[in-house]
């Protein structure tokens, strides 16, 4: 898979404009992840975890700043020619942050298992991106700096998982893996459903709507310009029409 993925990464990352926008997008994802970690800190009853989550949240915010700074620098260096390049997000999703995790619904153990896997995946992705950015040393340095943090995060979440749920840690990790797999499936299913829905509705639009559209346009031409007088609402009993 790595062999297949790397040429794709090279292709995705070689364009400086695309690189800049992807870094800016990563900044948003990191900031979102930081917010989720802060939420985890607010909800946990475990004081040690709270402190670690808060530190982790600050790291994520710092990463967001670093990504944003590098992305902005890249954009500036491109001057006015930085049109927004096509973004193949599905080819190189990068870090999905905490993957829309609902922190409120997870116990400490489940969340740590989830965080551990997310950080591990992020570390893998950033290592690949670091290789793929070619001669852009500044961007590579950004990835390598953040990669170190991600490795730390991966380690502390694993250790804490062992502390919080010593007997269930294996099961929690498997459950988190299944959860990630299920979310991937859901993303795929939603995207597929979306495509089918769009096709069906577009067909309906062109086949069924033209006579109604004609009538609607005719009615629109008869509408007065400016104020419309409102009828008294005395008979209104709170219906939905």
């Amino acid at each position: 898979m790595g062999v297949l993925r790397n040429p794709i990464q090279y292709w995705v990352w070689r364009d400086p404009s695309r690189r800049a926008y992807r870094l800016l997008r990563f900044a948003e994802v990191e900031a979102d992840g930081g917010r989720d970690l802060a939420r985890a800190a607010e909800l946990t009853r475990d004081a040690r975890l709270r402190r670690l989550y808060l530190r982790h949240a600050k790291d994520e915010q710092r990463h967001a700043d670093i990504f944003r700074g590098r992305g902005t620098d890249l954009l500036r260096s491109l001057g006015g020619g930085a049109d927004r390049a096509w973004q193949p997000d599905w080819l190189a999703p990068g870090e999905r942050g905490l993957d829309d995790v609902r922190v409120e619904r997870e116990g400490d153990g489940a969340l740590l298992a989830f965080l551990h896997l997310s950080e591990r995946e992020a570390a893998r992705s950033f290592a690949a991106y670091s290789d793929a950015v070619g001669a852009d040393c500044d961007t590579r340095n950004v990835f390598q700096h953040i990669l170190r943090d991600e490795t730390f995060h991966m380690n502390y979440t694993r250790r804490e998982l062992a502390r919080v749920a010593p007997r269930r840690q294996g099961w929690l990790l498997w459950r988190a893996r299944l959860g990630r797999f299920w979310k991937s499936y859901l993303r795929f299913a939603v995207a597929l459903g979306n495509v089918f829905g769009t096709i069906v509705l577009t067909l309906q639009y062109f086949i069924l709507l033209p006579p109604f559209a004609w009538a609607a346009k005719r009615a629109e031409r008869r509408e007065p310009k400016g104020w419309v007088t409102v009828a008294s609402a005395t008979a209104d009993r709170g219906g939905q029409y």
Binding site: T198, L201, T202, Y205, L209, A213, A216, Y241
Partner: peptide, 29 residues
């Protein structure tokens, strides 16, 4: 009133026909 809102969204798409073909599926979904 959700149904009145739906009416507005549908009528707006009809009035902009055929330029609204991209936004129509999105709005309906």
């Amino acid at each position: 009133r959700p149904m009145l809102k739906f009416e507005r969204i549908l009528v707006t798409a009809l009035r902009a026909f055929p330029h609204s073909w991209r936004s129509f599926p999105h709005a309906m979904k």
